[in-house]
């Protein structure tokens, strides 16, 4: 039965095949690569929930990742919290910002929402960069301790990998359960036609805020993992380009598809890494893959909606002559 096989397979790969293979290779670089890929899996899964399932095109997701990373960095370097506390705290702080940001912007229709998230994301970046007394600005925060949650030393490559894999599996479970439930159906209904969903008795704004809270919580956790495993955070890691990278993962993998988010993340992290021989082409490759994918694979690798459909509906909603006299961009 598929319902048992798929989770078993994921479990076997995450906790059996991959760690065994990586240990056998004994390469810190490969472990690091696996860690980064899994962190980006968490990010792409969380964005999949917002953009693929609920249909809200966000261009500022990296900001929440950054908030999570800075929360972990500041809590662990200034207050000496260990990772057992900083990871959940990062998720909560990020979700708090997610809700605060969602409250005023969720009433915006689609494309305006996308633009607002771009603006808010850059605002958070500018703040991280300039609030020097708190974030050390462009210098970044270094010497972030490795993962030692509740005194368990997981700072070895294998330990770190296993913790990240466990959290990625948890994120997968959360996104899967939310997306594949009647609750997930209501989110898809928002994606398809939120005005109609409203008429069917769904509290549209509240649903969007809830989705945003869950997704930003996961992004915050990804940020904390990044901070602890890299040991150093810098505002430049959480800019617009990073948001686009996450968006590209979701688009390439296919909007609305959970396997798509994972494959997209793996593809866009590992492929540029494999191309390192010919120089620093990561972002170029991301742009190129995204473009070709939109052009030739409009549903992504696994998607249930075409990217164009999403954008088309976004624009359609934004420009549909509103039947009411509410101002443009509002509903």
């Amino acid at each position: 039965m598929r319902g048992v096989l798929a989770p078993l397979a994921v479990f076997a790969v995450l906790f059996g095949v991959l760690p065994a293979g990586l240990s056998a290779a004994g390469s810190g670089y490969l472990f690091r690569l696996a860690d980064v890929t899994l962190i980006f899996c968490i990010l792409s899964l969380s964005m999949q929930l917002i953009t693929g399932v609920a249909g809200l095109l966000t261009l500022g997701h990296a900001a929440f990742y950054g908030i999570g990373a800075y929360t972990a960095a500041i809590l662990s370097t200034r207050l000496g919290f260990d990772a057992g506390l900083t990871i959940p705290a990062s998720g909560l702080v990020s979700a708090l910002f997610g809700v605060l940001i969602a409250l005023p912007t969720m009433r915006l229709v689609s494309i305006y929402f996308a633009v607002a998230t771009l603006g808010l994301g850059e605002m958070i970046y500018v703040t991280l960069l300039n609030w020097v007394s708190f974030t050390r600005g462009p210098l970044g925060i270094g010497d972030i301790p490795p993962l030692r949650p509740f005194g368990f030393d997981l700072s070895s490559p294998l330990g770190t990998y296993l913790l990240i894999a466990a959290l990625a599996a948890l994120a997968l479970l959360v996104v899967h359960r939310v997306a594949h439930s009647y609750y997930g159906n209501t989110l898809r209904a928002l994606r398809e036609d939120d005005q109609c969903a409203d008429a069917m008795g769904l509290p549209v704004v509240r649903l969007k805020i809830e989705t945003f809270a869950i997704a930003t919580f996961l992004a915050g956790i990804a940020g904390a993992l990044w901070a602890h495993t890299t040991g150093y955070v810098n505002p430049a890691d959480f800019r617009f380009a990073e948001s686009i990278l996450i968006l590209a993962m979701v688009v390439v993998g296919g909007l609305g598809s959970i396997p798509g988010a994972i494959v997209g993340a793996a593809l866009l992290i590992l492929l540029p890494e494999a191309l390192r021989a010919i120089g620093r082409v990561r972002i170029l490759a991301v742009g190129l893959i995204m473009f070709l994918c939109i052009l030739f694979l409009p549903k992504g690798l696994f998607g249930e909606v075409t990217a164009l459909d999403l954008v088309r509906r976004q624009f359609g909603a934004a420009w549909r002559g509103s039947p009411t006299d509410r101002p443009l961009g509002w509903r």
Binding site: I244, V251, I283, L284, G287, M290, L295, A307
Partner: peptide
């Protein structure tokens, strides 16, 4: 007019 936000974004990166 409606399907090109992502493609122009991708082109701009490239």
């Amino acid at each position: 007019r409606e399907s090109t936000l992502l493609s122009s974004l991708a082109i701009s990166i490239v």
